[in-house]
Design a protein around this nucleic acid. Structure first.
Length: 490
RNA sequence: GCGACGGUCGUCCAGUUUGGUCUAGGACAUCAGAUUGCCAAUCUGGUAACCCGGGUUCAAAUCCCGGCUGUCGCACCA
């Protein structure tokens, strides 16, 4: 079994995630549910993101609508740029990109935005047939990766957002004003995005409905190297690969000096992101920031780095880091006829901010954490351990009476009742103690508190460490301190 | 979306070739009880599945058709 399959199995068996609508035969691919363990882990991941990025940098978090009006996507370019002309064979249903198919077969230059009627005429003129079955083509249709929704009785045209950041752009002016914004200003958002992928695959890695954690940093393009807080991260070591995939291991400061990174602002946020991921338990030796070539970049990006991680199924993109310049605010300003310029309080000049974004895929990040933390301990009956950081573990501590008689169960219930107010705690009284330890390890629970006969005499319990399997005895009254400490220093 | 190959308890697999003996079997997991009392022990008992919809047939897990879905390849991937 590959590691991907092992994680999939664990996810299904232990309630991390599973297919959506699975009791129905017509359930569509690309939709997945988080089960109880997955939700707990996701919430903790998000809390870490808030701690290490949002609060650390003083960003502002918003929570916007998933349905957005058509104009938003006219302005963003998603409607104009991202409807591909499609032709379908009427006989065998094979589907082709019309523009590419025609230019490939005839050598004619077919721009993507050529009107449908002209494309239809070209097909007639050259008498093009399906290359698979020689069948006739139907008329050109348009495939857009966005989900269209009809609002109200008249079904007014609107769309599910294909990226959460559009909300941030359209809300920028109000947030900046009402929150007394100063440049550079990070605005952050966690939420769902929707893309009608042609072929969603590999569970959490390619979804039609997925979570993003996006940070849009609004900055003054004339002051990209004017950033005092860069000092905090100048020695952070980054793995950066250039377009030839050579990886340079450099500090943030060196990266600027060597011209690998363009300015302090970009370097600062890449370093913050690096520090965030180093706290998730992902093996940072298997990560890189990959600079994208002009062909690979998104249409709105002028400089782009993908933060990638090596997994059992290859390098996986977790975060897209794009310098979007003024593309978005300019577009929204033009379409909405609103002036989105702001005064940079530092020098009282008027500026249309540029944007640098960190667009994170939460689902992919969670998968990667599971895979990098997955550990089979061959020295102990192949026990399966998820070595999750305590602050990401779905359950922090298990409470286990060694046996149920002699009042141990009642004692355990008391401790459980106390701990569960502050921590994700799991009480398990049935089965052998070894089996109960194993079950907790499988879902990454870092600690197990065991109540034994000594507990009844002196109010001490043993605390077992998941990774070392070592136990130490502490006072019940010290449990709270112990767990607090464990959450902090790991 | 195309092509190839698949879809059976929570998980993995047997059964499909040659329709009937399948009231669908096993392992692990899970639940209850007994026993033990610090690392997957043992015993007993239980829960639990033929992807969905049609068709052929006296009879379908098994054959046929359609759909959905999974893996892989191609294409796609703001």
């Amino acid at each position: 079994m590959t590691n991907y399959e092992l994680i999939m199995k664990l996810a299904l068996e232990r309630g991390f995630y599973f297919p959506s609508c699975e009791i129905y035969g017509d359930a569509q691919a690309g939709f997945w549910e988080y089960g109880p363990r997955g939700v707990s882990m996701k919430n903790k991941f998000i809390e870490l993101w808030r701690r290490e990025l949002v609060r650390r940098d003083g960003m502002l978090e918003i929570d916007g609508s998933q349905v957005m009006s058509k104009s938003v996507f006219v302005a963003s370019g998603h409607i104009g740029n991202f409807t591909d002309p499609i032709i379908k064979c009427t006989k065998c249903n094979s589907t082709f990109r019309a523009d590419r198919y025609i230019s490939e077969k005839t050598g004619e230059n077919v721009p993507e935005r050529m009107p449908d009627e002209e494309i239809d005429q070209l097909i007639k003129k050259h008498e093009l047939k399906c290359q698979n079955c020689k069948g006739d083509f139907g008329n050109v249709s348009r495939f857009n990766m966005m989900f269209r929704v009809g609002i109200g009785p008249a079904a007014e045209e609107a769309y599910l957002r294909p990226e959460t950041c559009q909300t941030i752009f359209v809300d920028f002016a109000r947030v900046f004003k009402t929150m007394r914004g100063k440049l550079p200003l990070g605005i952050a958002q966690i939420g769902k995005s929707f893309r009608n992928e042609i072929a969603p695959r590999q569970s959490l890695l390619r979804l039609r409905e997925f979570y993003q954690a996006e940070i849009e940093v609004f900055c003054n393009p004339n002051k990209l190297d004017d950033l005092p807080r860069f000092e905090e991260v100048k020695n952070t070591v980054l793995n950066i690969s250039d377009e030839s995939s050579t990886v340079n291991q450099v500090t943030a400061e060196e990266a600027i000096q060597k011209g690998i990174l363009p300015n302090k602002l970009v370097a600062y946020y890449l370093a913050l992101l690096n520090e965030f991921y180093s706290k998730t338990g992902i093996d940072m030796k298997r990560t890189r920031f990959r600079r994208l070539s002009d062909e690979d970049k998104a249409f709105y990006a002028s400089i782009a780095f993908d933060f990638e991680v090596e997994t059992s199924i290859g390098w996986l993109e977790l975060v897209a880091c794009n310098y979007r310049s003024d593309y978005d605010l300019k577009g929204h300003s033009a379409t909405s006829k609103q002036n989105l310029e702001v005064i940079d309080p530092s020098d009282q000049t008027k500026v249309l901010p540029h944007i640098f974004e960190l667009s994170m895929g939460i689902d992919r990040s969670l998968y990667t954490i599971l895979e990098h933390c997955y550990f089979q301990d061959f020295e102990h009956e192949n026990r399966l351990v998820l070595k999750l950081k305590p602050y990401l573990a779905p359950i922090l501590v298990g409470v286990l009476p060694l046996m149920t008689k002699d009042g141990l169960a009642a004692k355990a219930e008391g401790i459980y009742a106390d701990l569960k107010q502050d921590y994700d705690t799991f009480l398990d009284e049935s089965g052998s103690i070894g089996r109960r330890y194993r079950r907790l390890e499988e879902i990454g629970t870092p600690f197990a508190v065991t109540i034994d006969k000594t507990t009844m005499e002196d109010d001490t319990v043993t605390v077992r460490d998941r990774d070392s399997m070592q136990q130490k005895r502490i006072q019940i009254s010290q449990l709270n301190n112990f767990l607090q400490g464990a959450l902090k220093d790991s």
